[in-house]
Each structure stands twice: as C-alpha cells, then as structure tokens.
Amino acid sequence: MPNTDHDFHHDDFEFAHEEGEKLIDRTYSATSYAKDVWNNFKKNRGALIGIVIIVFIVLMAIIGPSMNDFTYKQIHGGQECLVPRVPGLEKLGIFDGYHNGKDQYAEQDAKDVYYWFGSDTQGRDIWTRVWSGTRVSLIIALAAVVIDIVIGMVYGLVSGFFGGMVDSVMQRFAEILNGIPTLVIVTLLGMVLPAGIVSIIFALMLTGWIGMERIARAQVLKVKEQEFVLSSRTLGAGKFRIIFSEILPNIMGQVIVTSMFSIPNAIFLEAYLSFLGLGVPAPMASLGSLVSDGYKSMTTFPHILLIPVIVMAVLMLCFNLFADGLRDAFDPKMLNK
C-alpha cells in the first residue's frame, strides 16, 4: 500500500538489530569530576599496583631505619664493604655473606652480625642508610613535583595563553634564567645558603621549573585555538576561567607525566649539590648521594651501588605507573569514552 499522506506510521522504521534483542536505555546518576577521576583510576590495575608499592616504600622509609640496631652514621672499623647477609635466607645460599667464594663475615670477625643490605666502604649499614636516604629523596621528589606544577605550570599557562607582549617578556625572563648554566647558579647558592633540604628545594625552585614551563606553554599554544576554548569564550567566560577550567584539564595529562620525569633529575641534582656543599650534609644520606658513592665501588663491590639504584628504579617505575593512571583518569577525552 503506497504511503501517500506523508504521515509517519509506527511501522515505517524498524530496528536493524536481530530479532529478540532488547535495547535498554541506561540512566546514570550524575557524578562529580573528582569521582569520575577516581572511578577511572580504580580501573587501571598498573596504577593500583604502583600506588601500593609507593605506599610500601614510604612506610619503609619511615620505619626501615629503626628496624635494626644500626644508625645511619655509625662507623664500624674493620667491617667495611661486607656483602648482604640475612638470617634465614643465608641457609638457602643467597644473602649469605659470601663474596668471591669467601665468607667475608668470618674473615672480618663478625660472625654474629647481620647487615641485611651489606655495609659500605666505611662500615656503615646500608639498610639503614638506604631507607633514611629514601626518606630524604622522597621529600625532595615531592618538592620537585610541587614546584614543577605550581611554578612551572602556572607560568607556562599564563605565558602561553596571553601571548604577545606578556608571553615575550615572560619567555625572555625564563630564557635568561635557563641560559645561565644551573651549575653556576647553584654554586653561588652554596655560598649563601646553609646545607640542608631547604636549600636543595630552593635551588630546585630557582631552576627546576623551566622545563615544565616550556611544556605547559607548548601545550597551551596547541589547545588554546581549539573549538572548545572558542565556545567557552563566546559564552563569555573570563580569562582565568578559561585557563583553569578549560585549558588546564586538557593539558593535565602531559603535565603530570612530565613532572614525574623531573623526580630523578631532582634526586640526582641533589647528589651533585652535596658535592658543592649544598645537598644534605654528610653523613646524612640520600638516594642520589648513595648512588654516586656506590659508583666508586661498582667494579669491586657492586652491591653498594645496586641496592640504591634498585630502590630508585622501582620507585620511579611505580611513580610512572601511578602517573599514567592519573593521566588517563584526568583526561576529559578519556572520561567521555
């Protein structure tokens, strides 16, 4: 029957799906942005593993140094460079204090002593030093990330968004600061500031944020001409509103990933600073200074280097898994999927 009255009938269209399949409209309860982020983050297994290990390492940094009778600066003459020995495990043939087929502990007359991670070239317990060093390095890492994000990102955002004269002046300033080698700047700081964590953070603050600033600016330049910014602008949003609630969430992923990469840089910068007299004052340790000390014994007693490097690498791996999870969770484009 020809349909001539141009009216729609209920059977004009039918579902292209197979017979019997039901289509149910789901309704979702409105969730907040934070909750969305959390839900997304939870789904990422790697990120969860990462955060569990980070929590574990943080716990060890807090309680590790007090788990045995040694202190980080206690020197044991005659018990230098011992390899790890752990009660229990030694029966399995690992961590039994043997180096090149000789029982070092028996040779050094230290039969009842257990250095779980071995001892360093001055006879100090590496276990205690590694965990107290991790504590220092975690604080530095945290500071590095905060400085990166607070100073670097905001600077980059403002510079990139406003463009023109503002951008030009801000970029020249950053160029001058970055055009002077970091070493020259921090050497001078060494004279003015006393050694300690505050000074390290200050040194990071002077120079550490510039890398992030450039990345944030590049991201803004990329994003700011896009349609959603334009639409926000036409709707009459203020400049700061556009920066912080439109552009910021869109570049957050890149920012987080970059800031994670600034962590090892900060930790190693600290090791260099202690050489200039600016880092954590000896005999206090940090992961960076443990690595650079251990380097000297790398070909003879590799365990002195290996242990801090492993802690460092695991920590970094977990920070990155965590950052990846955060990045995916924060990304508005991923949220919509």
Partner: peptide, 8 residues
C-alpha cells in the same frame, strides 16, 4: 660537617 670547594 660543612662541605665547601677547596678555594672557598
């Protein structure tokens, strides 16, 4: 401990 470069 006060660590400094030699000249300083």
């Amino acid at each position: 401990l006060v660590a400094k470069q030699k000249k300083e």
